[in-house]
Amino acid sequence: MALLEVRDLRLSFGGLKVLHDISFSVEKGAINSLIGPNGAGKTSLFNCLTGFYKPKGGSIRLGGRPIMGLAPHRITALGLARTFQNIRLFKEMSVLENVMSGQHCRSRHGIVSAILHLPSQLREEERIRAVGTHWLDFVGIAEHAHRLAGGLSYGDQRRLELARALASTPELILLDEPAAGLNEREKLDLVHLIRRIREETGITVLLIEHDMGLVMQVSEKIVVFDYGQKIAEGRPEVVRVDPRVIEAYLGSED
């Protein structure tokens, strides 16, 4: 059974149809990509999957469980984490505090136990900090743990956002244009990092990306969008030569 199963998903804003009956699935342990020209509806789809938009119809299942219509925090708690296209860090907080936010839905102590400094609360804090440090280390920015997130270089901010999403120990992670604004070297590092996510943690990856080279390099399956519709789906070498895809990107001859 697929980890993520999207069936006939429809989304509209007023009279404007943004997504038309989208169906696709992501297998457990896969690295898949969504591509398409600007405005094709990729980020809207992510927003539907993560509960930020309320679709008009269809179904979304994560590990067999229906998640459509749930609030974003509930969906994260069920194991679906995301990053944002325009980096959305808590810039005024430390790098460590940022990554610790991922563990919020995996911990439970509240106000009263914090006031009483219960031993179990202190242990939990210790664990949250350890998990945070682990993921900072995983993406390679552990030495910046006590700096302000807003003060990191752009590439490191992207890594931190990734670490923060990973720290929620998801089953599936959605990356919204993780390579945007990165230079060639940083893109290579990113490819390496995405592969390590799957190999070392078993977390499934679904990404939106404009950089074709990167997409072709990392993904086993590509889903292509145009004007809110799925126009192609398949292995990179198949999608690359699909006439509908070429038309969507380059325009048809007539």
Partner: peptide
């Protein structure tokens, strides 16, 4: 600091 990012990372705002 960022309500949407907080919701996205699993916080019930």
């Amino acid at each position: 600091y960022d309500e949407d990012a907080a919701a996205g990372i699993g916080i019930n705002r």
